[in-house]
Amino acid sequence: MLETPLQVSEVFRADQFELAMLGINLLKGILGFVIAYIAYRGYRRNESRPMLYISTGFILLLAVPFVSFAVAISLVAAVDLPPVAEQGVVVVSELSQLIGLLVIVYALRM
């Protein structure tokens, strides 16, 4: 039997993948702002502190990472950032998500 190497095909090219991920992150950021705004309106209408915490949690969970990555991308385009700065953006994003989840859990336990 004749052996032939397996053929590997890419589903997405690198630029298509980055564009798709940017679009997904944009939708996540917008959705985070919308959910936070609706929760904040609920807080203002009912003066419910848990709704304020839920609003804050969603801002930290979805909006802050989006904004931090958008700022990092624009800085990378303008100035060549060192890898440490890029790692800092990832750490800020991950911590923001963790704190956002903890705030939402706290609000649900109130």
Rank of each mutant, 00 (worst) to 15 (best):
E3R: 09
G57I: 07
R109K: 11
I35M: 09
N46H: 12
V92T: 10
A63D: 11
L98K: 03
V71E: 01
Y53V: 01
F17G: 03
V105W: 10
Q87V: 09
E94W: 09
F66C: 09
A36F: 03
V34T: 13
Q7G: 04
Y53I: 08
M110T: 10
D15K: 02
E86D: 11
A77T: 06
A85W: 14
M110N: 06
Y53W: 15
A39F: 13
L6N: 07
E94T: 14
R41Q: 14
G100L: 04
Y53D: 11
L27P: 00
L22H: 13
L108K: 11
L98F: 03
G29M: 06
M21E: 14
P65E: 02
V92K: 08
P65Q: 02
G29L: 03
P83V: 08
V91R: 11
Y40H: 08
D80Q: 13
S68H: 06
A36N: 07
D80K: 15
V92M: 12
S55N: 00
G29W: 01
N46I: 04
Q87M: 12
L75D: 07
E18C: 04
V79I: 13
S68K: 05
S93K: 00
V71A: 13
I24S: 03
V89E: 09
P65K: 05
R109A: 11
E3Y: 10
A85G: 11
L26W: 10
A72F: 08
F66W: 13
L52Q: 08
